[in-house]
Design a protein around this nucleic acid. Structure first.
Lengths: 164, 164
DNA sequence: GTCAGTGCAAACTTTTTGCAACTAC
DNA sequence: GTAGTTGCAAAAAGTTTGCACTGAC
């Protein structure tokens, strides 16, 4: 499924959700959905609010952005993720699964493939839970922070020895 | 490693970190560390600030709480996790790994065992990254929300049929 | 004694709420 | 026409900052 298809599908899902719940299909909602689905990375609510309030065709207020991000969450179109020390919204259809290495030292997040493990996670059976996607977060230290830590520990040891 | 040992170890790590960086080992820092390591669930910064400002022996201000949570993060003693729609701090020594089922419908988080998968994750090799812990988040719908969705979809279909 | 650390209050960022005007249905 | 929706502004929630005083080393 490419990006455009993803948006088309999401639009349809939104329309269904709105109709189902007797809510209205406003231009603001469609513009917001498109903004999120066109971005190639998760977006921050405040940032999105800022961009949307400056739109050419349609100027959307902060309140409307926040209201509809919640609605999109309820509709299963977007979800919140915590990344780079902020809460971001990402489309739910993007990836079935992702493995992220999160450095406890500098906070940097990198993604890795791990195809074998992916397959095993996909095979995991979850009772009474209808799984659609996953995220494996591996915490630790990146090579840079590991090296820095060692340097510091060496200094500490030296300090101790000097005291004696 | 039981809880008390974890705290003792953390205290030592804190002392080392402080000495190494020429920072001071204050009673406030130790009280905060103990508060976090004594809690049996991740804590919210604001909540912790409130509790600590009402302490009997020691009253710790909001600024000090926030300052030191950052310091503890730098020292690798705690980390931020996003849970229940809030950012919480958890001790880093607590769990080597956890599998969480996150419902996109109601937001409920439940943990599962998945021993087989755990072993496989533990065996994962990460190049240039020194892994110490992990969290597998599986997104989807819990049984309750799945049922509710089906009910709604039935209503939608009925609506369509009625129109014809 | 010195300088990092603390408490306090003010500033800032992000999110929520109340209400009048608007519009999709 | 009518209720859901939007925009605005004010309030709330969460976090950071500046500065004078304090206390760990």
């Amino acid at each position: 499924m490419d990006k455009a298809d993803g948006l088309a599908q999401a639009r349809q899902n939104l329309a269904d959700y709105l109709r189902l719940n007797s809510l209205r299909n406003t231009p603001e909602r469609n513009a917001l959905l498109e903004a999120i689905y066109s971005a190639d990375a998760p977006v921050q609510a405040e940032e999105l609010a800022k961009v949307m309030s400056e739109g050419r065709r349609l100027r959307i207020s902060r309140a409307t952005v926040y209201n509809n991000l919640s609605l999109f969450e309820d509709a299963g179109l977007v979800r919140k993720v915590f990344q780079d020390d902020r809460i971001l919204f990402e489309r739910t259809d993007k990836s079935k699964g992702v493995i992220r290495l999160v450095c406890d030292g500098c906070g940097k997040v990198t993604e890795m493939s791990g195809d074998k493990l992916r397959r095993q996670i996909a095979q995991l059976r979850t009772r009474r839970f209808n799984a659609v996607g996953w995220e494996l977060r591996i915490y630790g230290l990146c090579s840079k922070c590991t090296a820095e830590l060692k340097r510091k520990q060496n200094r500490l040891n030296k300090k101790d020895k000097d005291k004696k």
